[in-house]
């Protein structure tokens, strides 16, 4: 029976790392076919760098990633609450919300809107069968 591994990565685990090391760490986990549930989010330039590094790593086995950030504060329109979040983020890093990163061979698609998030999984059996045929 196939199993799915979800690895929780607390923000404290990446807090002291440089951007390069953060991305290396996250990609290493994903390349072991695990889905990461990261507390908080990466900086915007780190997200772009994660995509860039992912592209460099793509081969016949590793097809890329699915990525999604769930940030409940982004839908909050209260100015003072936004200001408070900004201040906390400046002091403690971007811990609000969470980030899901998974291998594209396992996650087909992540659909999100401000209220919910849906993970659509790949039909792995079908993929294996089609590969065997070839």
């Amino acid at each position: 029976m196939d199993s799915l591994t979800l690895q929780f990565v607390p923000y404290a685990e990446i807090e002291g790392l440089s951007s390069v090391k953060r991305i290396q760490k996250l990609l290493k986990i994903v390349k072991h076919n695990k889905i990461i549930l990261l507390e908080g989010r990466l900086r915007s330039h780190e997200e772009a760098e994660l995509i860039r590094r992912t592209m460099e790593e793509i081969d016949e086995k590793f097809k890329g990633i699915e990525l999604s950030v769930v940030n409940p504060e982004s839908v909050d329109t209260d100015f003072f609450r936004k200001l408070r979040v900004l201040f906390v983020n400046m002091l403690l890093g971007n811990r609000s919300g969470f980030t899901i990163i998974g291998p594209a061979t396992i996650i087909k698609e992540i659909k999100q809107d401000p209220g919910k998030i849906q993970l659509f999984m790949q039909d792995l059996q079908k993929k294996v069968r089609s590969r065997r045929k070839r």
Partner: peptide, 12 residues
């Protein structure tokens, strides 16, 4: 439109 690629591009 709520794909992370769009959000990442605009965020950058």
């Amino acid at each position: 439109p709520y794909s992370q690629v769009n959000i990442t591009i605009i965020g950058n």
